[in-house]
């Protein structure tokens, strides 16, 4: 029983990371209508930036803030430079471009920082949170950071004019133009925010999975699973989906005999396929609208 509780809590902790990636995926999906397969590599690259800044002697939280800002700018630039020119192109061209981006970021990171696994610091420490508590300080910190991030995003979208404009652009780009919103820039902003969210997720997960250019492939897959579970149209759903996926992963790893620990990706695959088959609109999403 105690083991179960502990595993659920630990699952929620990693689930927060999946939730962040799922959220980033849903945000780009909402703004450009495509799944960004390079989202994970973008987060990985951001995390390397943070590592570099820390190596150069910056205090953790300064490096953290700087990384988020740089990632935001990077996301905006990628949208403006790489994606804007093809925004009317078919899905396959988008997928190919995302794959190109993925290859570039992956290779660039390996080139600059090599492929050796690096430890990444945690600002929270790794001591148990309370004496024989279920989770350690870093896991608790991860949960806290995610909650703060979500609160910030909620406030931004709910109460600011830019947030309103972004929601309007996602809802109906044509009408958004008709009220004078620069929809193209809203997409760039969405990309920037997604990149920043990914950066936070990367910096939070790196102390656990360690830093290396391929660290995010699995996380991305779980992020996708979370996004699909929540329905691609719903940011809140993506967060809940990510948490559920984290818990399921942890429980399966612990309680499935023999191969539990080896099934990481397979579980994500099973979740994605099962959700898509049984409830394609996700647990919280609206029905998928087919454009004819």
């Amino acid at each position: 029983m105690e083991l179960l509780l502990q595993q659920i809590l630990a699952g929620i902790a990693t689930g927060t990371i999946y939730a962040c990636i799922a959220l980033a995926i849903v945000m780009t999906y909402q703004t450009i209508g495509h799944l960004n397969f390079a989202q994970g590599e973008m987060a990985m690259f951001s995390t390397f930036l943070a590592w570099q800044l820390i190596q150069w002697g910056l205090p953790y939280w300064t490096a953290f803030a700087l990384t988020v800002a740089l990632s935001f700018a990077g996301g905006v630039l990628i949208e403006r430079i790489v994606l804007r020119p093809i925004h009317n192109a078919p899905v396959l061209s988008h997928v190919a471009v995302f794959i190109g981006l993925l290859a570039i970021l992956n290779s660039l990171a390996g080139f600059i920082w090599d492929f050796n696994v690096k430890p990444f610091p945690t600002p929270f420490g790794t001591a148990p949170l309370i004496a024989n508590g279920f989770i350690d300080a870093h896991q608790a910190g991860m949960i806290a950071v995610t909650i703060l991030l979500l609160a910030f995003l909620y406030g931004f979208f709910r109460f600011t004019r830019v947030g309103l404009a972004m929601r309007a652009s996602a809802n109906d780009p044509v009408s958004a133009r008709l009220v004078g919103i620069r929809v193209g820039w809203m997409a760039a902003l969405g990309w920037g925010m997604a990149a920043a969210i990914g950066a936070v997720a990367g910096m939070m997960i790196a102390p656990i999975v360690f830093l290396e250019p391929n660290m995010m492939l699995g996380v991305l897959l779980y992020g996708f699973a979370g996004a699909v579970l929540g329905g691609l149209g719903s940011p809140a759903g993506a967060v809940i989906g990510g948490l559920i996926v984290g818990v399921v992963e942890n429980l399966a790893g612990t309680f499935i005999p023999v191969v539990g620990g080896e099934l990481k990706f397979t579980i994500a695959l099973a979740i994605i396929v099962a959700v898509l088959v049984m409830k394609p609109q996700g647990l919280f999403g609206r029905p998928v609208l087919h454009r004819v």
């Binding site: 004019r161 309103l164 404009a165 929601r167 309007a168 809802n171 109906d172 044509v174 009408s175 958004a176 133009r177 008709l178 009220v179 004078g180 919103i181």
Partner: peptide, 30 residues
């Protein structure tokens, strides 16, 4: 639009997922 041309489009162009008041606020977003 920013020069002061408002268009009431064919098919109304409602932001269906936003509230009525948000729709109106969007009219003045610029």
């Amino acid at each position: 639009v920013r020069m002061g041309v408002a268009h009431v489009p064919d098919g109304r162009g409602t932001f269906v997922r936003l509230t009525v008041e948000e729709n109106l606020e969007l009219g003045a977003i610029t």
